[in-house]
Amino acid sequence: MDLKTKFTPQSWPAHPENATLEGKNKTLGFWIFLGGETVLFATLFATFLALKNKGPNGMEFSTQSLFELPLAFIMTMLLLTSSLTSVYAMYHMKNHNFKAMQAWIAVTVVLGLGFLGLEIYEFYHYVHLGFTFTQSAFGSSFYTLVGTHGLHVIIGLAWFILLMLRNSKRGLNLYNAPKYYLASLYWHFIDVVWVFIFTVVYLMGVLD
């Protein structure tokens, strides 16, 4: 691969993420990895469903008493919107518009940080109530499921930020285009998992 090739929007390939063999391998490998991640989250969901509301005798906490839907709704909106903004970033990546792509990624990162802030606030609130990781099996499984998702958000944000910084001088080329593409796939996957979390954990938790 040659980093010296300068691209114009016209010479930039239509699918830059698949334009090199390395890019093709990375994209496919990442999808396969996401297949593994799917099973990983399924395991966490399954455990949460098995241990939901289970704790020491007379435990006061339950999904009904803890969860507040407005907060979950705002978090959902933030993450869904950030998913769209990263689609915009990839749109500009395919048009070889580096500045616009970086800007949309920055917006994505800001929205993601907002989501993360609310999640930290939520955890802090529960811990304050006495519902901790070690308090019950319910607590352990809840924090592990939602926390693993939160960890993915942190990794996704770090990935985006690192990409923006490392490439700010380099601009867009066929070496880093697949990296951006994969980071955005990862971000969409985080959103996919969250759709199930807000449905299965929060909405179905509040239902009785």
């Binding site: 999808w31 396969i32 297949g35 099973v39 399924a42 969901f45 399954a46 455990t47 469903l49």
Partner: peptide, 18 residues
């Protein structure tokens, strides 16, 4: 193919756990 396979296994597992 890989995502649908993963979804199928995920479904089996969740079914077993409930």
């Amino acid at each position: 193919f890989f995502m649908y396979s993963a979804a199928f296994i995920a479904f089996t597992m969740i079914l077993a756990f409930i």
